[in-house]
Design a protein around this nucleic acid. Structure first.
Lengths: 252, 252
DNA sequence: AGCGCTTCAATTGCATGCAGTTTGGTGTCG
DNA sequence: CGACACCAAACTGCATGCAATTGAAGCGCT
């Protein structure tokens, strides 16, 4: 007992958490597109853990709505419908209004500096890929939520923001981030000034315009395959199972 | 396997889900008080499953905020702080405003009948225990959410409503349900009439007054033990571990 | 009695194994 | 050529076993 010959202990050991964070990030950066398969085996192998753990992680992500779990089937990255995407944004708007309402006029100098630093990072990332821009923009909102010191609010805002990210990869066209960045700056300014009504309005407008820019049409524009498009028409036939059509190759 | 007549009904056979629902209900009916221990073994035994499944269920409930999970420790029913309780209600208000905004003037006759029937049930339950009244009141709100046909909204409203239930058992004094019932009726009426602004206002006021009635004082009044009361004072000492005091018998 | 130390049962963390289900491919027959 | 039956591989659902950690009782010391 004198030494720890087994260097097992060196880990932060929250293996489930590690996997969740990794997958979450992969999803919001669109490395994993909606519909991508997530077999427990592969996940376990990739992260050096057993299926049990991978499975548990998938359960968590399913609870967050990022992953879809169907009995006896391979888990897949969630594919929210257009309506769900719209709903997610509506919820998000309300939650983030709450965030900025709590924050208006209550931020410390260092917090404001932190926010500005983050937006600077967003600015620098403008040359990079869309994926990174989107992630940074999302993290800005999560950062705001964290400053409320309300764990519940942080959790819900994070969740719904991730979910919105997911929908961006489904329905959004390649998107211009500039205005978003400016709007972030405006929000910081209004927060610093303490104008509660103004900042709530700004946030509302900001998210609404992001949603409108993203969710342009109720039909999937970008690359989702036939099965998804046909899904609503299958409602009459069966609840869970799409009607069998001859030879539609699911993109594998 | 003797006692169980293998009621393998197609009712989802989802053992994890069964356990989650059972525990959720036990928690909101205050059969399980905040702080109650939930060892994986006992759970598994009680529900006739292995620890693996019980563990998974606990993970889900933890994701919903109903259960607290600390590494290598027995899971316990969550004990939200007063501030968290207040935050939960604030979030809930926003979410449910969204619900009634979507619903105003769009309910079918049968839906209205269903709501009225539910409130009638609440009425009949007035003689019974507080636990049942609280559960029914909560289910009324969830029922409303379900009528939006927005799965996301349903999930968030359910979660946060359960969480609020949890706080009631912590901070509320024995509570009078009559006004709540009347307010439910008023909400139904306004929904039927389609007065969006009015119903949002009603819901806001309803939840706010429930919160105010429940969260009377920032200090736990009812029966939480010393350790919880002292918790905030221990912040200085250690992040995770309460300072050791002589012989406080934790209610086992 | 009060305080530290040792020890041990209770409990969690995780991997593995087996059984049942789904999936995709192949062969057979109309 | 296409539809159907069938089979093997892949995968999930779940229980069980083992190592590691915790918490509390027991014990001696002051």
């Amino acid at each position: 007992m004198a030494a720890r010959p087994t260097s097992k202990t060196y880990e932060s050991s929250d293996k489930v958490g590690v996997i969740c964070r990794a997958l979450r990030r992969a999803i919001i950066e669109q490395a994993l597109e909606p519909g991508a398969k997530l077999p427990e085996d592969s996940l376990g192998e990739r992260f050096g853990v057993s299926r049990t753990i991978a499975r548990h992680a998938l359960g968590q992500l399913a609870a967050e709505g990022l992953v879809e779990l169907r009995r006896n089937r391979i888990a897949v990255v969630a594919t929210p419908s257009w309506q769900e995407a719209r709903d997610a944004f509506d919820i998000r708007i309300q939650l983030e209004r709450l965030v900025v309402r709590q924050l208006a006029g209550k931020l410390t100098k260092s917090q404001i500096a932190e926010l500005n630093a983050h937006v600077d990072a967003e600015d620098r990332a403008r040359g990079g890929t869309d994926a990174v821009s989107i992630r940074l923009a999302t993290e800005f909102h999560i950062l705001l939520a964290q400053m409320t010191n309300s764990p519940i609010l942080v959790r819900y805002v994070s969740e719904v923001a991730y979910r919105c990210c997911l929908t961006l990869s489904l329905y959004s066209r390649p998107h211009s981030t500039e205005c978003a960045i400016n709007e972030h700056r405006a929000i910081i300014a209004a927060l610093a000034k303490g104008d509660e009504a103004k900042v709530m309005e700004l946030m509302h407008h900001h998210l609404d315009s992001v949603a409108n820019r993203a969710l342009v049409a109720p039909a999937p524009l970008r690359g989702r395959d036939l099965l998804d498009i046909l899904a609503p028409y299958a409602d009459e036939v069966a609840s869970d199972r799409v009607v069998k059509l001859p030879k539609i190759a699911r993109r594998s």
